[in-house]
Design a protein around this nucleic acid. Sequence first.
RNA 1: GGCGGCGUGGCCAAGUGGCUUAAGGCGAAGGUCUGCAAAACCUUUAUUCAUCGGUUCGAAUCCGAUCGCCGCCUCCA
Length: 467
Amino acid sequence: MQIYNTLTKRKEEFKSIEPSKITMYVCGPTVYDYFHIGNARTFIMTDVIRRYFGYKGYDVTYAMNLTDVDDKIIKKSNEEGITPDDVADKFIDAFFEDIEKLKVKKANIYPKATKHMGDIIKLIKDLEDKGFAYNVDGNVFYNVKKFEGYGKLSGKNVDDLLSGARIEINNEKDNPLDFALWKKAKDGEPSWDSPWGKGRPGWHIECSAMSMKHLGETIDIHAGGNDLVFPHHENEIAQSEACTSKQFVNYWMHFGFLNIKDEKMSKSLGNFFTARDILKQYSAEVIRLFLCQTHYAGPLNFSEEGLKSTENGLKKITLLAEEVLKGLDNSEGVKPEFDFDSLYASFETAMDDDFNSSRGVAVIFDFVKAVNKVIAENENISPEFFEKAKLFLEKTAVGVFGILDFNSISISSGGSLENELVELFIKMRTDAKTEKNWALADKIRDELKEIGIELKDSKTGTTFKKI
RNA sequence: GGCGGCGUGGCCAAGUGGCUUAAGGCGAAGGUCUGCAAAACCUUUAUUCAUCGGUUCGAAUCCGAUCGCCGCCUCCA
């Protein structure tokens, strides 16, 4: 399995620290607002990656942090006149609701910054003791010059950064690049006691502290959006490695941006759609397929046309899944020649190559086409064939991508009064057809469609489904 | 100013030296099936990969230049 590692800037053979076990940490949301569909890309693609590891038989321990103490939360709490905790709680709830609607499997742990103050303070103290941090009147800064590898992830060097035009002026810092580990409390802000007085943690320290606490000093994978490479992840490395003298993360993975008309979707530009709004119009499966059709690292333009075209494509998969379910009820039939093995192999080859979901999805479409061909060419097909076909879809489309849900496929089955009534209409229509009374036959079909029942004629008779 | 990414058919998107005279999806056109639909199947839809040079027996893939777009360096997934 090959994974592109931002740290080494190339694809590398993936080797976990412990055989068949993986530790993975992903930078989650700062809970001050509903997350947008660009954030969702990270949540969904890490979900796909995590699911694929599961497919491969790995036991994954996956942590996603919730940043619940932060400038933006404080700002929001002032705007709304509620406490920062209330802001955080509200959007943590919303986060879990949205993530569930997007069919993202839950992480094993969702550590919160506010629940790890002891660990954070201990880490800062350690950095101070080791000479990597200095205290200026209750503010503690990290001394970037002390850490030799600073810039190794983002490919920057301290001198280039210093010549950059947009570095803020802060007289308290020895060096403009130094960043806050601990911020002295201001009036009305949430604060915690520490050896440096009351205050709260800086932005980057929580991830170092929580990743090391829950997953270990060295972990397999750390992922996040492209915009976190610098400074966030760079600083995490500096904090963690200065403290442990061990490699913090073996594989760094970064996701490309979701753009609107070639511009990064972001809260600050205001060009964003929240995931919950998009979910009102499109299913989780459509959104997931839309994202999976592009490799995770590249940019992806978000558009209504794109979602629409994905929705049409997904229909093909769903309709085939329906045929597969129906085929399970066959009593007997031919056992067609079908090379499941080579399809599994193609799927794995694609996904083994840095999670190339775009190719993985193409394999599913190839499969759909091949099964449709089998169905078109044979009158009766054995249920065993459909069982194998269902298993393939379950492992790939359902299990890895989450772009199909057998439970939401309604196939007509007798029993209820409603179904019997529809069957009655179908019988009447069949009679009308025999009498070549096309006007009546079409009227029945059209009117049933208006109340949400779709009829489909085939050689073997007419079937219906709710739409 | 520093660093990095990208430019493939009408649209989206894989491919990064020969297996590709470029996957897959959407759209479009024709055909089979059907009373008509729908679905499905078959066929067609890039002699070409921003442009121009170069390396090579061979390049969308490597090198150089040019044009265009985007990102990071400030909070951001």
